[in-house]
């Protein structure tokens, strides 16, 4: 499965109704939805995932689940996104098969090379800018880090971390295939409009 270029991936936050957020983000042109709810039960995740996947299919967008390969396996999601604290990508690849979209979060060249060797489809690179959506003890890596990390993996890059309207185009110019956001869409009064404007900026 190939990653579309100039892609907006919207990740669910911990508070909003994830299905409603997905509906609006997709209406605004998001090409990928990632369901990420660290403390939710398997039952909630499964039911949300089924509904978001349906919305994604209507718009020909990709749907992936954060961390929970079991949920992706159970409801046949397009794939998963794995952090460094999640199951190794090689194990997820063995479970989901060659056609699955598997993303791995990396923040340096070593992690990028490992992700590629483990069979990742793309790498999530960050955090690029300071971010408040997740507690990050390490400093942001900046846009200049994108190319060397991309080269180490030879995989498409989705940049993440503190990306907003003002810096989104810069990230694409720096070599990313797409951007992933949480608060830039979920914290907006009008998530659909926020997504639409982000898509416009990264396609300019």
């Amino acid at each position: 499965m190939n990653l579309p270029r100039r892609l907006l991936c919207v990740i669910t936050d911990e508070e909003s109704d994830p299905v409603e957020l997905a509906r609006q983000a997709l209406e605004g042109g998001a090409g990928m939805m990632q369901l990420r709810r660290k403390k939710a039960s398997g039952r909630d995740l499964f039911h949300w995932a089924l509904r978001i996947q349906e919305l994604c299919r209507e718009r020909e967008a990709l749907f992936i689940v954060n961390d929970r390969v079991d949920i992706a396996l159970a409801m046949h999601a397009d794939g998963v996104h794995l952090g460094q604290q999640d199951m190794p990508a090689a194990a997820a690849r063995a479970l989901l098969g060659p056609g699955a979209m598997i993303g791995v979060s990396v923040s340096c060249e070593e992690e990028a090379a490992k992700a590629a060797a483990d069979g990742a489809s793309y790498i999530g690179v960050g955090h690029i800018f300071p971010t408040y959506s997740k507690n990050k003890p390490s400093p942001p890596i900046g846009t200049a880090a994108i190319k060397p990390i991309r080269n180490a993996a030879q995989l498409p890059v989705i940049a993440i971390g503190g990306i907003d309207l003002d810096n989104s185009a810069e990230v694409i110019r720096a070599g990313a295939s797409g951007i992933a956001v949480i608060s830039a869409v979920s914290d907006s009064d009008d998530p659909a409009a926020a997504a639409r404007e982000l898509v416009r900026r990264i396609r300019q």
Binding site: R68, V69, D70, L73, A74, M87, A92, A94, L95
Partner: peptide
């Protein structure tokens, strides 16, 4: 417990 993915892998 709970995680079929971890059980299988």
């Amino acid at each position: 417990n709970d995680r079929l993915d971890i059980a299988l892998a």
